[in-house]
């Protein structure tokens, strides 16, 4: 394949990845990595390097809109980033001592298992608002956003310690596997902290850029960020993410949760299959 053709194909695929990723709070790596490796035969190292860049592009590209629309909860995001950045450093530290294959298998299975609680509340629109107590109250982990029909949704975050623990794992996985681990972030906010789905996905979107940036340095220095691959990925994702960010406010919470569940199932299956060498 000609280099220019390759770049055009990657650009178009990345637009799709950017739209999906920005809607459900993931980095698009789940879409980009298999297209690059299985579809185009790109070496896995360059695919992961491109994936890291795609996470940052999805995050920054869509977050500009989500933050302006006040869909993202900035305080929740920044509070939880304490755990994701710590996790990313620990992950980088132990990366040499753990098997990435075993890790992918474990993480893939966790993702697939987390489909169960997710599917059980698949139709939920706005969670019952818990009382704001303890650390959540002290750190004002509360907020509101306006739906397109003009109604204001108020919500409080609960169980911040569990949220932090989930984010520590998310950061750890990012540091070890070079992914944004938006899946785990959305799950932590949705299942543990009981935030509305759209707040969970946009706040995850906001956070994954920082998580990915934390582990990006090492991939850059290793020479895994190949310009021929990364240029179309970054541009396509940025374009796709800005499209997704415009579409999300009109989407309903249950719809976003359904799309997330599908992407989660694919992401989990992808990791298990890769770990098993299939």
């Amino acid at each position: 394949m000609l280099v220019l053709e390759l770049m055009v194909v990657i650009f178009l695929a990345s637009i799709v990845a950017g739209v999906i990723g920005s809607l459900v709070g993931l980095g698009g790596g789940v879409v980009v990595i298999p297209i690059l490796t299985i579809g185009l035969g790109v070496d896995i190292h360059y695919a992961i390097g491109a994936s890291i860049v795609s996470v940052i592009a999805t995050s920054s590209g869509a977050a500009a809109t989500y933050v302006k629309d006040k869909m993202t909860n900035l305080r929740v995001g920044m509070f939880l980033e304490l755990a994701t950045t710590t996790g990313a450093i620990i992950g980088a530290l132990i990366a040499a001592y753990v098997s990435s294959i075993a890790l992918e298998l474990v993480f893939g299975v966790i993702l697939l298992l987390s489909l169960i609680p997710l599917v059980r509340k698949i139709g939920e629109d706005i969670p019952v608002t818990p009382e704001l107590v303890g650390l959540s109250k002290k750190l004002e982990l509360t907020g509101s956003y306006v739906e397109t029909d003009g109604s204001t949704v108020n919500y409080n975050a609960t169980r911040p310690a569990q949220g932090l623990a989930g984010m520590l794992v998310a950061g750890l996985i990012s540091g070890l596997l070079g992914i944004g681990s938006g899946t785990f972030k959305v799950l932590s906010m949705d299942l543990a902290m009981k935030l509305p789905m759209k707040v969970s996905t946009t706040t995850s979107n906001f956070m994954i850029g920082v998580t990915a940036a934390a582990s990006a340095g090492i991939y850059f220095v290793r020479g895994d960020v190949d310009p021929i691959i990364v240029a179309p990925v970054a541009l396509g994702i940025l374009f796709g993410a800005s499209l997704g960010a415009k579409a999300l406010p009109r989407a309903k919470n249950p719809t976003v949760r359904k799309i997330f569940a599908i992407v989660l199932a694919i992401a989990g299956a992808e990791m298990v299959l890769r770990a098993l060498g299939i």
Partner: peptide, 22 residues
């Protein structure tokens, strides 16, 4: 400020420390 410190450490310092695989 803590997030910023951890982030900069992770981005700029860890790639050059052998124990981090740098």
């Amino acid at each position: 400020a803590t997030v910023l410190t951890l982030l900069l450490f992770s981005m700029l310092v860890t790639p050059y420390i052998p124990v981090f695989g740098g």
